[in-house]
């Protein structure tokens, strides 16, 4: 009897943006852009100014009321709120400044490769490339492959997400002692035959990623993160 296709879920694998140039395929780290960093800076400034403004307003009300123990509860509540908001504002500002500084000196990292998607029991050879806008003193390069399960569930009105790292492999660390304006290194990863296949369905994901770390002597260390897509092994 002929079966009717009734699939509703069309996407089983995560969407990963891979581009092609004349020689090979490549993927670019979408983080660390100048605009991304600038947005964090603006967000941080807005949060800090709002906290300062609300703080001044609350303080004026308390002073007008003549202070005293009657306002102690309100003062403590606002104090806790103010500390949290100051923390959020400072985190946004520092992240923004960090990302903007990196984006001013370095272009986004890219990995170049020949085969896509990756397959179990295969070899993944990739070249990490990144250009510094002024020569920087490079000290080392690291690369790490990570696989994690991400499960999201509902608990009452809250949506919770749990993550479990199920695979991690550090690739060979590369030592550098030179001033460079072009960073490039090729790594090879032997994909295990029993590596879990990528999955991205409603509230359940198996995510593969590659994290490349760049260490400098005269600048901030930085990382580039790329999403990998692992498919089943192809057999004859």
């Amino acid at each position: 009897m002929i079966a009717t296709d009734t699939r509703k879920v069309k996407e089983i694998l995560p969407k990963v943006k891979v581009e092609e140039d004349a020689e090979s395929l490549y993927q670019e780290d979408s983080g660390d852009t100048f605009w991304g960093g600038f947005q964090y800076v603006i967000g941080g400034i807005i949060v800090l100014l709002m906290t300062l403004g609300i703080g001044t307003f609350v303080a004026m009300i308390i002073i007008d009321d003549g202070g005293g123990l009657d306002n102690l509860f309100g003062f403590i509540c606002f104090g806790i709120f103010g500390i949290i908001m100051l923390g959020v504002g400072c985190w946004l500002l520092s992240t923004g400044i960090y990302n903007t500084r990196v984006a001013i000196k370095l272009t986004p990292g890219r990995i170049y490769f020949k085969e896509w998607p990756l397959k179990q029991n295969d070899i993944f050879e990739f070249t990490y490339r990144r250009r510094a806008k002024v020569p920087l003193h490079l000290s080392g390069l690291t690369a790490k492959i990570i696989c994690k399960e991400v499960a999201t569930y509902q608990q009452g009105t809250n949506t919770r997400t749990v993550t479990e790292k199920i695979y991690e492999q550090e690739l060979e660390r590369v030592e550098h002692h030179s001033r460079e304006d072009f960073i490039s290194h090729t790594w090879v990863w032997n994909i295990p035959p029993d590596a879990p296949i990528s999955l991205s369905v409603y509230r359940n994901e198996i995510q593969w990623s590659l994290v490349v770390g760049v260490e400098f002597l005269d600048f901030l260390n930085d990382t580039s993160e790329f999403t990998l897509l692992l498919n089943p092994e192809r057999v004859q």
Partner: peptide, 20 residues
């Protein structure tokens, strides 16, 4: 029908792939 579903910590995802 032929179907798959998830079990575990995450909310259930499922799909019926084909049926007769």
């Amino acid at each position: 029908s032929l179907m798959w579903r998830t079990e575990g910590r995450g909310s259930e995802a499922k799909d019926t792939v084909a049926e007769v």
